[in-house]
């Protein structure tokens, strides 16, 4: 009896899913991607394309050219992008943990929120960006499934990362345009420096535009 119900339910879900994904081509950019359900963050990467920049775990990448920055594998960690439209400088950092715990890791500023954002800003300033002109978007801070009262914030790395980011942004007086945080999904952050478009793709195959970091583009739209 329950089996039959589940069979029907599954079938129904599948139908809805199919219809839904078909009716939203912009979100899923074609059914090919969704039908094979490849999260395939790495598949996004085309290494022969020099305008693509991979932002790996715990790294900082800054560019003043026209690039697509792709930051895959964001779980409880944070992918953060900053843009100075006037100077034409874009930078992305993939931070894993809230703060430096061990002196031997001081040479890895990108790994921690406590050092990563400041270092990103510094590197962008070297290329002519101004902190006061930076516009920020960030994603991540996912967590394992927890049941209501059991939540123990102390081991909850995602929640702690998110709190650390908002502290840092506040103390560095940086302007945030949009964020996509929490939940149980892995994410990939995609930044088009030319248009200022920031997209977030989840590991279950969905993709959406989070925001446009460039004001001129926004006004044109």
């Amino acid at each position: 009896m329950e089996r039959q119900f589940l069979t029907d339910y599954l079938h129904w879900c599948h139908e809805i899913f199919r219809v839904w994904t078909k009716s939203r081509p912009s979100e899923f950019s074609g059914e090919k991607r969704f039908n094979t359900l490849e999260s395939n963050e790495r598949g996004l990467l085309d290494m022969s394309n020099p305008s693509q920049i991979l932002v790996g775990a715990a790294t900082i990448r800054v560019s003043n050219g026209q690039t697509t920055m792709i930051c895959p594998g964001i779980g409880s960690s944070i992918g953060l992008v900053a843009m100075d439209e006037v100077a034409g400088v874009t930078g992305t950092v993939h931070m894993m943990l809230p703060k430096v715990l061990n002196k031997s890791s001081l040479d890895k500023p990108g790994r921690y929120v406590s050092t990563g954002i400041a270092e990103l800003v510094r590197q962008m300033q070297e290329q002519g960006a101004l902190a006061s002109r930076l516009v920020i978007a960030y994603v991540g801070g996912a967590e394992v499934f927890t049941f209501g009262a059991e939540r123990n914030q102390q081991f909850n790395i995602g929640t702690r990362n998110v709190a650390a980011v908002s502290d840092q942004l506040h103390s560095l007086e940086l302007r945030t345009l949009a964020a996509d945080l929490g939940g149980n999904n892995g994410r990939t952050l995609i930044v088009e420096s030319a248009s200022g478009e920031v997209r977030v793709r989840t590991t279950n195959g969905g993709e959406r535009t989070l925001c446009i970091l460039k004001r001129t583009q926004l006004e044109a739209a």
Partner: peptide
């Protein structure tokens, strides 16, 4: 949680 090899099931575990 560090995002190494997350699939569609992501962090959807207890």
């Amino acid at each position: 949680s560090m995002g190494y090899g997350l699939g569609g099931d992501g962090l959807l575990y207890r």
